[in-house]
Design a binder for these strands. Sequence first.
DNA 1: GGAAAGCCGAACTTCAGAGC
DNA 2: GCTCTGAAGTTCGGCTTTCC
Length: 327
Amino acid sequence: MNTITKSDFIRYLECPAYFWFFKKKPEVLDNQELSDFDKELIKNGQEVERWARKLFPQGVLVESRKKAAIQETKELLNSGKKTIFQVTFEAENLYAMVDILSWDDSNGYWIINEVKGTSAQDKKKDEHLYDAAFQYILLKMAGYKVGKVNLIELNKEFRKQGEINARKLLQITDITDNVKGLEEEINLMIPDMKRILGNNREPLPCECIYKSRNNHCPAFKHLYPDVPDYSVHDIVRIGLSKKKLEALIEDNCYTIEEVPKDFKLTKYQRNHVEVTQTKIPIIKTIKITEKLNELVYPLYFLDYETYPTAVPIYDGCKPYQQVPFQY
DNA sequence: GGAAAGCCGAACTTCAGAGC
DNA sequence: GCTCTGAAGTTCGGCTTTCC
């Protein structure tokens, strides 16, 4: 039986078929290469984690990875360490790494501290909650008493002034109740994930066919070879018009050229379909001319770039603030 | 005449897309 | 990852129409 990691669980939430292919047949997946910008975002997330560790000065880091990390975790726990970073557990074929695990002496239980490189909002992202809940369930399975789950995020009100204080930069939110609220649901998902993995035959086509392009899983091309790269899934904001997209798919209408003239669409969707079908662009010459006539010459242009960092570099800046620059 | 259903517009919420 | 914009969807209240 394959081990199911926390990342696998997130894949399962995204699309169960994608989860199967990732574990059993990853060569068919359409994995987009990360852009430089995406790579920087990942680095930002890692930096936030380093700052979060400063909140726990007694903490020790699990240096090894995978199976060796599980053994190192056990050794650190057996030696009485009460705050551990990147602590790694495995139980009943589930595997997860906890960003920061700390022992609460007064209450006699462990606290899971999940670190995210996001700015703290009142409404917590579902993905963060499911992520933390998976860890909570796994630690309970492994026989640990977990009394609290915290989410550590960036404080969006923070403004850098001189040296950064981690306590001001970061915000800790108790999400224990949210996590416990997901426990029953995830406990039903776990056997389903194991059942899917136990199947050696490719799964049936996924529900992604009814989602807009950006929400397709990486197994989409393999599962739906008849759907062209540019299809009805690309009609503007079609993801918000679920019934329309479902109706088109049910009629086997995959290309925009096939969309019937009388098919009900919004004004902008109809424009998109018509331009695609007729190959004639819509140019509002009069409106453009009116707008251009409002301009007073001479005109000056200033080109600049911006760059956001999770942890602000300059005084007066907040997390992820776009800082303009030229080169 | 009163209840239910349908319609419509305003206000509000959600989400996609673009940019970095 | 964030912000911004604006379209689409949802909700709700008011009004009208229909039916019993």
